[in-house]
Simulated assay, not measured.
Amino acid sequence: MKVSIEFTYKAPKGPKALFKSDEMPAAQAIMIAEDLEASGRGKEIIFYDRHEQSFRLKDLKKYLKGIETEPHNVTLYFDGGYDKATQKAGLGCAIYYDQNGKSYRLRRNTAVDELKSNNEAEYAALHLAVQELDLLGVHHLPVKIIGDSNVVINQLKDEWPVMKEELSDWADRIEAKLQELGLEPEFVLVSRKHNQETDRLATQALNGVDITSTIELNA
């Protein structure tokens, strides 16, 4: 969760001025706000999230404490592969998240039929990953979504138009699910080299190797 800080600065025996910060992680914002309070010069401190919902300091602390028991700090990787000869697609996703003070990685893949292209397989892989977020109970949080598909990332960022009907249908389904879960997606395009884990999962699915696993990561 990222927030901005709005506060009134009061100089000793001097004028007041209103300041608003850039967005930053909520935990970092709390540290800054506590320092402002300790100095005695930061007054009327309010935090705002991306939806302009406001929090007082004690309310933001309470909110962060509440989400510790739920999956948070979520980063999602996805990839899809398509075999023209068999018209089969392999879908893969990896989700990294924190919960109860520990870090986890979930990996999932599957093979599907009746898709028409590699681009459609990429969309289907992201849809699979978003469904996994729902099963994990991830909601009302920012989520970093990482993939190597120029088409999917740029279309979902509204930087490229969605011309093909089948891709538009996938985009609509994904956006509707993200909205239903109250998630704030940050789409990040990477090279295939930096997406090898889910590329391998998608290839394994095409080869008939099914993977569903969740492990705790070492600190």
Results as ranks from 00 to 15, higher is better:
Met1Ile: 02
Ile5Asn: 03
Glu6Cys: 00
Phe7Val: 03
Thr8Ser: 09
Tyr9Ala: 09
Tyr9Gly: 12
Ala11Cys: 04
Pro12Tyr: 14
Pro12Met: 08
Lys13Glu: 15
Ala17Phe: 11
Phe19Trp: 07
Ser21Pro: 05
Asp22Ile: 03
Met24Asn: 05
Ala27Lys: 12
Met31Gly: 00
Leu36Trp: 09
Glu44Cys: 01
Glu44Ala: 12
Ile45Val: 14
Ile45Trp: 08
Ile46Asn: 01
Phe47Lys: 02
Arg50Leu: 03
Tyr63Trp: 07
Val74Ile: 12
Gly80Asp: 01
Gly81Gln: 02
Tyr82His: 08
Lys88Val: 00
Leu91Ala: 06
Cys93Asn: 03
Ala94Trp: 01
Gln99Ile: 04
Lys102Pro: 01
Tyr104Gly: 01
Thr110Trp: 00
Val112Leu: 05
Val112Thr: 08
Lys116Arg: 09
Ser117His: 08
Ser117Tyr: 09
Asn118Ser: 15
Asn119Arg: 07
Glu120Arg: 10
Ala121Leu: 06
Ala125Met: 08
His127Met: 07
Val138Thr: 03
Val143Trp: 00
Ile145Gly: 02
Ile145Phe: 06
Asp148Tyr: 05
Ile153Gly: 03
Ile153Lys: 04
Gln155Ile: 09
Asp158Gly: 04
Asp158Gln: 14
Val162Gln: 13
Lys164Phe: 10
Asp169Gly: 05
Ala171Gly: 10
Lys177Arg: 15
Leu178Ala: 12
Leu181Met: 13
Gly182Met: 10
Val188Lys: 14
His194Gly: 04
Glu197Arg: 13
Leu201Asp: 11
Gln204Trp: 13
Ala205Tyr: 09
Ala205Arg: 12
Ala205Lys: 12
Val209His: 14
Thr212Arg: 15
Ser213Ala: 15
Ser213Lys: 13
